[in-house]
Amino acid sequence: MGSVGMAGVMAMNLVAVGDAKADVTGTLALASDYIWRGSSQTGEEAAVQAGVRATHGSGLYASLWGSNVSFEPDSGARSEFDAVLGWSGELAPDWSLDANATRYLYPGTGRALDWTELSATATFKQRAWLQLAHSRDALAGGHPGTYAQIGMRLSLSDATRLEAAYGQYRLASAQAPDYQHVQLSVIHAIAPRWEVRATGHATDNAARQLFPGNAGTRLEVALQASF
């Protein structure tokens, strides 16, 4: 194709993208704990969390999610914001993909705890998923880390579902040993835009050594609204 023809196609594509409307959604949640990959991020205290996401018709999206945090030893962080840029869409009739880059931000720490991760999640029939995530600066520790999670979702009724997941975090030996965790959730819709969930978490001894006092066996209960 000549340069003029290619330019015309690119222009038409830009117009088509520009004409597509962005869909803005959000969430607001109150949780008994904020547990991330098996470890409490709030010292087992309650968390208030909120997020907003703008999704373009092309599948491109941007989102911002935040929560209060509390770490030991005290790093000065009182909040976490996850800024995400990504794409999600259908790959085949039964398969979908979400690929994104996430920047974890902790105001008040002089950017010492900020780090970036690339992630991709493949989902089959909205019933099972496989996630792979990698960072060259995992947990802001200066070493690479790769996280993998496999999960399944089972509907018990129109309002209730079960979700189970197993995750493994492979970290550079200079930073910490690899660790594993599992979680099991019961989620129940109590209104069209409201749901309550209870999640049990468990980790191995490596996680307990890496996150003393914050890993192990935990129960998290949350009420979430979507808008």
Rank of each mutant, 00 (worst) to 15 (best):
A46Y: 11
E80Q: 13
G89T: 12
G76R: 03
W87S: 09
E80C: 04
V48P: 05
Q49C: 11
A46F: 15
E80W: 02
A50G: 14
S58Y: 13
S67P: 04
A62G: 15
P73K: 06
S88H: 14
S79W: 08
S75D: 07
D74P: 10
P73I: 00
D82M: 13
S88F: 07
E90K: 13
Y61E: 06
G66S: 14
R78Q: 10
S58W: 12
A62D: 03
G86R: 00
E72V: 06
A54E: 06
G59A: 07
W65C: 01
S58A: 11
S63E: 14
A62R: 04
L85Q: 06
Q49I: 13
P93V: 01
G59H: 06
G86Y: 10
A46W: 13
A50E: 10
V84M: 08
G76P: 02
V84P: 08
D82Y: 13
A54G: 13
A54L: 09
A77I: 04
S58D: 11
E45R: 12
L64C: 04
E72Q: 14
L91Y: 08
P73V: 00
E80A: 00
V52Q: 10
A54Q: 07
S96N: 09
Q49F: 06
E80G: 06
R53C: 10
A47Y: 00
N68F: 01
W95P: 00
V52F: 15
G76H: 04
W95N: 00
A92T: 10
V84S: 06
G57R: 03
S58T: 15
D82A: 11
G89K: 09
G66A: 15
V52D: 11
A54I: 06
L91D: 05
Q49Y: 02
S75K: 03
L60I: 14
V84D: 07
L64R: 02
W87N: 06
T55K: 14
D82H: 13
A83C: 05
G59F: 08
S63F: 11
R78F: 00
S96A: 14
G59E: 05
S58L: 11
Q49R: 05
P93T: 03
D74I: 06
W87P: 09
A50T: 08
S67A: 12
D82I: 10
A92H: 12
S58E: 11
S70C: 03
F81A: 12
P93L: 08
V52E: 11
V69D: 02
G76D: 01
G51W: 08
G76S: 02
V52P: 09
T55W: 03
G86C: 09
S96T: 14
T55N: 11
G89L: 12
